[in-house]
């Protein structure tokens, strides 16, 4: 079952009883201001690529004091990240520098893998569990039902699961903290309902 959820879109943040909107010039400034609103002491956030930042922002309330996953065993928290654009924003930045200067930046190259966002989330919260980055045109719980089953088979009792997308100046997330010890069909239906509300 879904224990908690977060929605973020271009500065508008909503997670449980926490709801706010920030203004700013562009997606990066809005993400930074939203992060500050959550009072997260984690400077690494500001150095991460945009896909990683929107994922860390959306998942932050789950691990905060009193959050749905605060006391969950980190060994058994899985991660499923669904995205359409994936790392395209990072791809574009890296490629443009390479094209215009002939120089490849190692710092820009590494986040050209969309699953880097899972790595950033795992480092932020010490998550050693299973996880997948799934590329798809639109959020669909039905499509990822096999991946939810995979996490359960590998002993994941909880999961951070959902959709994040960033490109062309926008950033959005629909994330759920899930208790995986429920019927698989119920998990998929609840997640689909969350996506449909979007």
């Amino acid at each position: 079952m879904i224990l908690a959820s977060t929605r973020y879109r271009d500065g508008a943040f909503h997670s449980g009883g926490l709801r706010f909107a920030v203004e700013g010039d562009g997606a990066d400034m809005k993400l930074a201001r939203a992060w500050d609103k959550l009072e997260q002491d984690y400077p690494r956030f500001h150095r991460a690529d945009r896909l990683s930042r929107v994922l860390m922002l959306g998942a932050a309330p789950f691990f905060a004091p009193g959050g749905a996953l605060e006391k969950a065993d980190r060994e058994h928290i899985g991660m499923l990240l669904c995205t359409s654009t994936g790392s395209m924003e990072s791809d574009h930045r890296y490629h443009e520098l390479l094209r215009t200067s002939g120089t490849a930046s190692p710092a820009l190259f590494v986040p050209t893998l969309p699953s880097i966002a899972l790595g950033e989330l795992s480092i932020r919260h010490g998550l050693h569990g299973s996880g997948l980055c799934l590329m798809m045109t639109a959020p669909s719980a039905t499509a990822i039902a096999p991946a939810i089953g995979m996490l359960r088979q590998q002993g994941m009792r909880w999961a951070v699961c959902g959709w994040t997308d960033t490109f062309a100046g926008r950033a959005e997330a629909i994330l759920a903290a899930m208790d995986m010890e429920h019927a698989a069909d119920d998990l998929v239906n609840e997640l689909q309902h969350l996506f449909d509300e979007h």
Binding site: I144, P146, A147, M150, Q153
Partner: peptide
């Protein structure tokens, strides 16, 4: 199910398929 898990992608895909 389109998996991008860096250099572990191919092995992860086999896991996802067989588990499914």
């Amino acid at each position: 199910l389109t998996i991008s898990l860096a250099c572990a992608s191919g092995t992860a895909a086999l896991i996802a398929a067989c588990t499914a």
